[in-house]
Nucleic acid binder design. Structure first.
Lengths: 225, 225
DNA sequence: GGACTTTATTAAAATATTATGAAAACTCAG
DNA sequence: CTGAGTTTTCATAATATTTTAATAAAGTCC
């Protein structure tokens, strides 16, 4: 999951960045609206955290432009408490949530998780996939109460595919959202293939994994329901 | 889908080329306006991506000439951000879209898809054909929620015919746009016939495919509506 | 209807893509 | 700095796709 944080207060920004990285997000930082829009233009994001009180541009205008550049991202507005106006206008303009400053980092995380659930239509904590149960918050994959021991990247890959179930994701898309690296020119590594293989191998010790499909010439996808 | 990229900045050009190839486009490259016009004169394209800041000729003039050589292609202008003049003039001269540099590759792709939809009058994600539903973005052909498993070339062929529905396409045209190979004079392979046969066979497992017609002596066409 | 042309079908060969195992490189706690 | 675990690279095996080629079937024209 790739996050862009647009926030001019640097101390806060670094704090949030460090926290998000711990919580397994890929995080980019912009201290000005201009820089933020530039990044939005060049990269796809899953989340954008936008401070409305930026010095260089009007926050709500930034939101409008940002949504044009990255319509698929989820937008969370950060602003001083009580600024009801901004909140209402922001939500009208299509923000997905609003967080008054100062906020706790755990609060931020739980809002992001809630948005993920809404956006991807996940209504329970545990997602069932074949005989497996996957808990995105706890980062656990289990089968009959027994946990499968996936590594971090393995879990990230599995969960990203899961959130976009029934859709083929190319290696490039996966690489961008999970590794945050843009594999430009001569992208010819097979590390995603290797991770997929390892996921399959670890899970197949419990049960079949036929829901994790290869779409030849395109990428991988999880088929569900 | 065949794309011509006219761009003198080689690093960018190669990056875009690699990306487009991954996204299933056939891509030709020209580093000068002259070379670009020469290619436009010799090959048919579906898209032309034109950098307006070329060293050897005025970008807008190139656009005018290019449109004469290849009136059917969709033109996307690439230019430095904020060069509003160029943008307006370019759109006046008949460009289909405008992309400020630096742009994200995914943004480019989504613009190209949007243009395709406009150009070919496709307003929904899914296109209905007989009892089948075809999703060009997801690369899925389905019948009553059941997916048909087409391979990459099969899907490319079907979708190209679909975009040019009600029009006969010769084997040479198909070969050029989908394979990017110019099958010169003595073109005598039957691989397109074989693919057509395989598409028909896979789809006929679900329903009749009488909308995919053979036009004897000419080529193939999809009849719709 | 028969001679010819074009397309459909089948199976095998050539090519391209993905899976796998194992080693190398990297990370990070201690 | 060390070492266990993780991630990435690389070489090669396995598999699927694409193309070729030979033959059958179908349409066209006289």
């Amino acid at each position: 999951m790739k996050v862009l944080l647009i926030e001019d207060e640097k101390t806060l920004a670094y704090e949030v960045e460090a926290f998000l990285k711990k919580a397994f997000y890929i995080c980019d930082l912009a201290h000005t609206a201009h820089k933020g829009l530039e990044l939005l233009d060049m990269n796809p994001y899953d989340f954008v955290l936008l401070d409305l009180g930026l010095p260089d541009l009007d926050g709500l205008k930034v939101l409008q432009q940002a949504k044009k550049l990255n319509p698929d991202a989820a937008y969370i507005i950060l602003t001083a408490r009580g600024n009801i106006e901004d909140r209402i206008i922001g939500l009208d303009l299509g923000a997905d949530d609003y967080l008054p400053k100062p906020f706790s980092l755990l609060e931020l995380q739980s809002r992001m998780q809630a948005i993920s659930r809404r956006k991807f239509n996940i209504n329970s904590q545990e997602i069932i996939l074949g005989e497996f149960s996957i808990d995105l918050q706890k980062r656990i994959v289990s089968h009959n109460q027994k946990e499968a021991e996936l590594t971090r990247k393995e879990f990230d890959l599995l969960s990203y595919l899961l959130l976009h179930k029934n859709r083929v994701l190319t290696r490039m898309q996966l690489s961008e959202h999970i590794w945050g690296t843009f594999a430009d020119d001569d992208y010819d590594s097979n590390y995603i293939d290797v991770h997929i293989k390892n996921i399959r191998k670890k899970l197949s010790a419990f049960s079949t994994v036929e829901w994790l499909e290869t779409v030849r010439g395109v990428g991988y996808k999880i088929r569900k329901q």
